[in-house]
Amino acid sequence: MDWEEVKKQPDEILDLAEKVASSKNIKLIICIDEFQNISTFDQPVEFQKKLRAHWQTHKSVGYCLYGSKRHMLLDVFSSQSMPFYNFGQVLFLNKIAEKHWVPFIIERFAVTGKEISAETAGLICTLTENHSFYVQQLAHFSWLNSETTCNPEHVTTAFETLLLQLSFLYQSLTDGLSNSQINFLEATINGEEKFSSKEIIQTYNLGTSANVARIKQALVSKEIIEISGSDIEFLDPMYKHWLSKYWFKLK
């Protein structure tokens, strides 16, 4: 398909799936990953308007739009000024629970002739906070460390190896943060909640209450934390562990 021709006939391209589905009397679902990147396109709002104008008329095609950057997706779907506002149902996927991870890890070890107890598999989940990518990565490192049976010592050693492997990335990330942003992360790791209180602001040198709000927004934009109500969570649990041990040197 020639791109220059595509640009000349965008309407036909946007309706292509609907025409195919209708002609074959079938239903289609179009899945688009990392949909939040649409906001980086040239004239993003105009493009979104065109997409919605076509897609909302389709009767034989459904659209599953998803991505990994929640705050950017919310900007696309939850802002009343945006074309995709109320386009469809917004679903937030929770992390896979430990009760599902543990039997999976045990089964994958067993396939290779190795054993791991439910307790040790649970340790993998706990250390990675059920983060899908890191659960699998730590499980793999733990598998490499063990011969026939994986024990907690293998997991903790693998965990340290993984942290050190990520150190260069995390060092670079932290170097790009301001002192107040780093201080805010330390307060978060320490379990602080009243970030606008005079005591917390002075203890962690956060400036002012208004500055705390700016710090939060900056860290959300940098995809370091996610805020849901009063809860603040690191998007990367390994980064939290790395900061705690190697940057803040907390016990």
Rank of each mutant, 00 (worst) to 15 (best):
V6Q: 09
F141A: 09
L163K: 09
I227W: 04
F248R: 04
Q80A: 12
Q165T: 14
S39Q: 07
A187F: 10
E147R: 06
E12L: 12
A118H: 07
L51Q: 02
Y170F: 15
E160A: 00
I106A: 15
A97S: 14
G176D: 12
M238H: 12
K69G: 02
L185Q: 04
Q80C: 13
C64A: 14
T149Q: 02
S228R: 12
Q56N: 13
A158R: 01
F109G: 00
H100L: 15
Y204S: 07
S79I: 03
L162Y: 13
T120Y: 00
T208I: 02
S221F: 10
I215R: 04
Y246W: 12
R70I: 07
M72C: 01
Q89L: 14
I232N: 02
Q43L: 08
L91H: 15
H140A: 10
Q80G: 12
S23M: 08
K194M: 15
L166D: 07
F87K: 04
I189K: 11
G229W: 01
E4G: 08
F184Y: 10
K194V: 11
Y239Q: 03
S23T: 08
T120L: 01
F168S: 13
T149C: 00
Q56Y: 03
W101T: 05
T161Y: 10
L16P: 01
S228L: 08
A110T: 04
Q171L: 03
F41N: 12
D33W: 08
L162S: 03
G62Y: 07
S132E: 11
L123H: 07
Y204H: 09
Q217T: 09
